[in-house]
Amino acid sequence: MSKRCIDPAKAREIAERYPAGDGTGLIHALQDVQAAFGYVPCEAVEVLCEHLGVPISKAFSATTFYKAFSLTPKGDVVIRICTGTACHIRGAQTLVDEIRAVLSIEPGETTEDMKFTLETVNCVGACAMAPVVSLNGEYHGGVQPGAATRMIRGEE
């Protein structure tokens, strides 16, 4: 995994949006960190925990419990394939297999050049448009085999 340096001032700025010594803001603060950096860097966790007055173990307990958090950096393009029921029966697994084959990564992994991350998501709630794929939060419905690959090629 490649290491990226983070700006500690940015982590501090996020921490200070929440009252000092109040641990109840932990998940919200972690969500802000995830949004700002694209993942939860260990250095940011330290800054956050010190400010909120909670042990670091509690932050890791939360980040490993909730799926929205990632402890590793993500690629420039995050490909999320919905694998909810409607997408599943309309071929979501095929799309996952296709992207796995094209990018040589498993779901949850990032390509070595940090360009793409492949993720699956339980349901994005656009079931009538199944199967659904999102690229950096932009939704595409009715994705046919081959179309997902073309979308990725378009991002290259």
């Binding site: 919200h28 939360a62 419990f65 909730y66």
Partner: peptide, 25 residues
Amino acid sequence: IKQGAGAFVCGEETALFASIEGERG
């Protein structure tokens, strides 16, 4: 608004309350 963090079990009300309070759901 409290934004969830991606845990299906938080649809269960006592888990949801724990999550609102900043705990594991």
